[in-house]
Simulated assay, not measured.
Amino acid sequence: RIMVLRYGNLIEEGVTRDLLDDPKEKYTRELLSVRSFRKERYQPDKDRSVILEVRNMSASYIKGIKVVDNINLKINRGKTVAVVGESGSGKTSLARVITGMLPPLEGKIIFDGQELAPALKSRDRESLRRMQMIYQMPDVALNPRQKIRKILGRPLTFYFGMTGKERENRIIELLEITELPEKFTERYPGELSGGEKQRVCIARAIAAKPDLIICDEVTSALDQLVAEEILKLLHNLQREMNE
């Protein structure tokens, strides 16, 4: 499914193929006119349970100015929902609200049937593990003073208590999954390309074995070819993790 935001408001929502073929709102049509999409045969998936539900969500950075306003959203397990809109439309703010980095003014976040605490610091470790976020700028998301081994090892220890050989084997496995060589364990983020750094961010996210991954414009800082590779990787990982 796709939902279209503008100025924090929901403009339109619908099944991906239906919305791309026949958008109802002028703003959606303007967005789609910017670039063309390759059409693929649409095959409806089997019914899946709802993993995330956002109810009547509003949030603000400054009192009296809402950056998202009365947003409702449902995401089924194993599905992809694209939130689209121009810069400043509220996409990142919505992601921050869902992950608890921006506590909402009102509304509820229901994750796998349980209401989550509004603020990140109030959520338990298991809730944190099950919902991961991949950020727009890998240069900011990765600690430049830590080697890739430590970056990937931290969630393994934090969430699963892994140490020693078990953790090392899993780090190597995560690199293989994201199509990075084992030798990268000894490198710093500054020694990697933009696409390689984003793959490390993906590896760190899946290290937690999450049920939901939120991607905040993960290809916007990459050139077109590298961006396509990252999207293919995410698509393949989603398919493999839901088999």
Results as ranks from 00 to 15, higher is better:
148 I>Y: 04
172 I>P: 03
185 T>S: 02
149 R>I: 08
196 E>P: 08
230 I>F: 09
179 E>T: 07
237 L>Y: 04
224 Q>V: 15
202 I>M: 10
230 I>H: 02
151 I>C: 00
184 F>R: 00
144 P>N: 03
144 P>M: 00
218 V>Q: 04
160 F>A: 03
158 F>S: 13
217 E>F: 13
237 L>H: 04
179 E>R: 12
233 L>S: 00
165 K>E: 14
182 E>G: 02
239 R>I: 15
230 I>V: 14
211 D>A: 12
175 L>D: 08
204 R>C: 04
220 S>K: 11
204 R>E: 07
233 L>R: 00
227 A>Q: 15
218 V>R: 02
160 F>L: 05
151 I>W: 03
181 P>M: 01
203 A>C: 07
232 K>I: 14
208 A>D: 09
216 D>Y: 12
181 P>W: 06
186 E>L: 07
225 L>P: 01
212 L>N: 06
205 A>F: 11
209 K>P: 03
166 E>P: 13
153 G>H: 03
159 Y>L: 06
243 E>R: 14
188 Y>E: 04
232 K>Y: 14
157 T>D: 12
234 L>D: 08
229 E>D: 14
239 R>Q: 15
207 A>P: 14
178 T>A: 02
189 P>F: 00
201 C>T: 09
227 A>H: 10
149 R>M: 09
153 G>E: 09
231 L>S: 03
220 S>N: 13
144 P>W: 01
160 F>M: 02
208 A>Q: 11
195 G>F: 05
168 E>P: 11
235 H>G: 05
209 K>C: 10
207 A>N: 13
237 L>K: 02
221 A>Q: 10
183 K>N: 15
195 G>K: 04
189 P>V: 00
145 R>D: 05
171 I>H: 06
170 R>P: 04
202 I>D: 13
188 Y>C: 00
209 K>D: 14
191 E>W: 13
162 M>Q: 13
157 T>H: 08
212 L>V: 15
223 D>C: 07
238 Q>P: 06
188 Y>A: 00
219 T>I: 13
182 E>A: 11
238 Q>H: 11
184 F>Y: 15
152 L>C: 06
174 L>N: 01
144 P>L: 01
177 I>S: 05
203 A>Q: 07
161 G>C: 03
171 I>G: 09
187 R>G: 00
182 E>Y: 08
172 I>V: 12
241 M>K: 02
234 L>G: 04
158 F>Y: 12
167 R>V: 07
181 P>Q: 04
187 R>H: 13
158 F>H: 14
160 F>V: 04
179 E>L: 03
176 E>M: 07
216 D>K: 10
239 R>K: 15
162 M>I: 06
213 I>W: 01
172 I>H: 05
227 A>W: 03
164 G>N: 07
